[in-house]
Each structure stands twice: as C-alpha cells, then as structure tokens.
Design a protein around this nucleic acid. Sequence first.
DNA 1: AGGACAAAAAATGAATGCAAAATAGCCAGC
DNA 2: GCTGGCTATTTTGCATTCATTTTTTGTCCT
Lengths: 245, 245
Amino acid sequence: MKSTIPDTGVPITPPAGNGGDRQEASLHGEILLRLRDYVVEGNIPEGARVPERQLCEMLGISRTPLREALKVLAAEGLIELLPNRGARVRQLSQRDLEELFDVMAGLESLAGRLACEAITDAEITAIEQLHYEMYGHYLHRDMHGYFQTNQRIHESIVTAARNETLKTAYANFAGRIRRVRYSANFARKRQRWAEAMREHEAILDALRRRAGSELSDILFQHLRNKRTAAIEHLTEPQEDAPASA
Amino acid sequence: MKSTIPDTGVPITPPAGNGGDRQEASLHGEILLRLRDYVVEGNIPEGARVPERQLCEMLGISRTPLREALKVLAAEGLIELLPNRGARVRQLSQRDLEELFDVMAGLESLAGRLACEAITDAEITAIEQLHYEMYGHYLHRDMHGYFQTNQRIHESIVTAARNETLKTAYANFAGRIRRVRYSANFARKRQRWAEAMREHEAILDALRRRAGSELSDILFQHLRNKRTAAIEHLTEPQEDAPASA
DNA sequence: AGGACAAAAAATGAATGCAAAATAGCCAGC
DNA sequence: GCTGGCTATTTTGCATTCATTTTTTGTCCT
C-alpha cells in the first residue's frame, strides 16, 4: 500500500473550471503553475511517489502536458525524476537546506547591493513604513504578521534591485525553501526576534546611506543567522509556544 | 526564405550513435543535454524560429521527448516558448546581459565568501598555480589561454564554496552568458588586462587570508568591471581600436 | 498592380496507443 | 517460516494520431 497522496477528492482545483486568473494560454503552462503551487504548499509528503496516472485524474488532463510540467519542476529542483521510476517530491537533507539558505543569502546580499545603486527615496520610505509595521507586530508578539511583513521587506529590496533575472531566481529558491516551511511549519525562535529587529535597523540604515557593500554584508549575515535558527528548529522542533492565538 | 537553422546535414551528432559518454539513461535527458549544448554553443541564430519537426529529424527522435526538453530549456531561460508559435532562441537585450552579469557577480561574490569558510590550503595552492599559469598567458599575450585559465580559477572558487546548489545555479547562468559569448565572440579589451590581473592578485590575497566579506567585495567589483568591458564591447565590437568617436 | 480575403498547408498542443521496464504477487523450495 | 525465482500487473517512456491554430499561398476584386 502506497497511499501516495493524501487524496481529498479533487485536491487542486475543479478539473474543468478555468480556476486561476493567471493568464497562461497553454494547458501545460496552467498545469505547471498549479502543480508547482501544489508541491510548494507541501500537499505531497516528502519523497512520496506520485503516479502520473493519479495526477492526471486530479488535474483532468492527459499525461503528455503533465509530463512536460514534471520535467520543468524537476529542472527547478522541486521534484526529482528517477529513470523509469517516476517523480518523487525532492527530499531536502539538512545539508540541502543549508545550501539553499546560503544561496538565498547570497541573492539577497546581491539585491541589497544593487538596490543601493537604484533605489528611490520613495521606495526607501515605503520600506521604512513596512519596518515600523513589522515593529508593531514585534511588540504585539504577532508572529504571523511579523513574518509576513518581514517577507515583504525582503521582497521590496529584491524589487528595488531592478533586476528581473535576479528576481526570478530569488522566487525559484524561495519556493524550494517555502515547501519545507509549509511542511515543517517552523517559525522563528523568540530569542532571535530582538536580534533580527536590530539587524533590520542596520539594514535600513545602510540602505538610507546607499552603502552597497555594507548592506551586502549585513544582509548576508542576517540571512545566515536566519539559516542557523531554521536548521536548529528542524533538528529540535519544539520551541517555546509556537502557535499564535 | 526561412532558413531557420544553418543546416549542415546532421548538425548535432549522428542520430543513431550514442554520441556522448555522459551517462543519461532516458532519451529525453540525452536530448536535453545535446540540445542545451547546441544552443549554448550558438549554433542557432538569435531569435531564429526552430521548427520541432526539423529538430526531430536532426536528433532522430519523435516530438514528445523533444518537446519535454524544450520546456526545460525554456525554464532555464535559454529559449522562449511562444504559445502556438514554437520555440525561439531567447534574444538577450543589453539590459538582459547586464542583469545576467550582475547575478553572476552576486553568485561569485557569494562563492568567494563561502570558499573562505571551507577552502583547504591545498586548494589555495592549486588556485595559486592557476594564477601563475594565467600570468604566463598574460605575459605571452595569449588571450585564449588566459581566458581559459581565468575561467578555471573562477570555477575553482565556486567549487571551493562546497555548495552544489550554488554550483548548479552558477553553471546555469554561465551557460546563458556563454551563448552570447559564442555568438558575439567578444574578448576582453587589452586595457582591461592589467587591471584584471591586479584584481586577481587581490582575490588571491583575500582568499589566503580567508577574508570572506572582503573577498566578496573584490569579486563583485571584478565581475562588475568585466560586465562593463563586455557591454562596451558589444556596443563597440572593435578591439583596441580607438574607442573614441 | 496592389491589397484583401479565403482556402490550403504546415506547425503546434494535447490525447491515445504501444513497447519496455519496474513493481507486486505468487508459488516452489529450502 | 522464510527466501528465491517466476509470472502478472502496473507504470513509465516514447511514438503516433487527432484537433486547433498559425502561416502561407492563390485568387479575386478594386
């Protein structure tokens, strides 16, 4: 008994309906987007075998476009394709996660450096706004809000870098990590909070001064610390009160 | 007149023969590798339309595995897939190239930083060796040799970073740029040479001292300068010729 | 002669069919 | 009772086929 997928009827979306608004003419493109989200959101257990047949039924399509989508997801590193053995959700070892975090750190570090060359005062103001908002979440111990705002800040920096290639790569790696995040549902350790806030202050400061190489350093360290916290959390899942109420 | 591909009989390899030694069981994987090389090496003119039928005949396969490979190449950014209009070799604008170079700079900068944490004395010695070899090419005005050795040095640094994820991403972006390099066949400007050599000295120095954040900075600047030279070369293809106008 | 429309040809997108490989199920033998 | 080998079923990989869409070409009208 495999029980490949925790099937709940029609998990992804109604097979027929043109669900998402995302403009994507081709069927295979539509499938790709849906499957990617489906995998990223952690709906398939790690390392689970995913028979094409089953996915086809779920999505209401034939195998051809599905297989095309699978190949792309494999190239993106979300799943792996064993020859003659089908697709499995890629299992990330701790080492893989460390590597991913480091690459993310490098990309954000780069984003900060580039942002300093191109960012407008208005954009900085917007980020300051987010920063204060995040500080509010911090004071209210609102982890979820904090986390979301934090993510928006980092995305703003990447956007300010004015580099679509970077942005795409960033989104790709972020997806791979997010998959784990959804599954493990790890949150930041409380004790990291104060430290992270201080680091964010420094980030803003360097950004205001357009100190590219300095910001680059700070961002790398910031992400490195994040990495450490995340890895520790994975090996020791229990941490002070996790769920926000 | 379409003349989509500069067809020379059977351009890629004999359709039947198991050409490459690269172990890749599946046909689609084999196709992917061959097609990628074929595109990277610039055998297809920019923006040229590539009828699937023609590629199928070239490769001696049916359309199914070919289309799978095309989807992957599109995801990698080497080609683009227009709906119902087939695949075209992705045309890189000057802006695209700038972005790519910057991302490469970011990745190498990251590689340098990580390398400082993990590199062994033996690896540093090996890089020093390459450095001297490169210096020899520089003295002999051997651009080709210089270029190759230079590439090996940068690859050594990426390898020393001990991060397979980074290495894969690096290879991907390098491929996209190489495609242009093959096509445009641009080389370094002579006047950049001396400067580049000095920068390499500084790279080695920082590496020896394991000064991660410093090396990160130097590498980024080094690649940035490379970018400037490359872009200038694209707009003004003449080498050494009076850059004035 | 030039342009617009229409039909034919070709190319793409997706579905189906078929062969090979892998998995599982089963029986015999130890 | 367990292991080892053999067969049946499932699943993957690729080729082929069918349905649209696009592109080309030919013709007619102005």
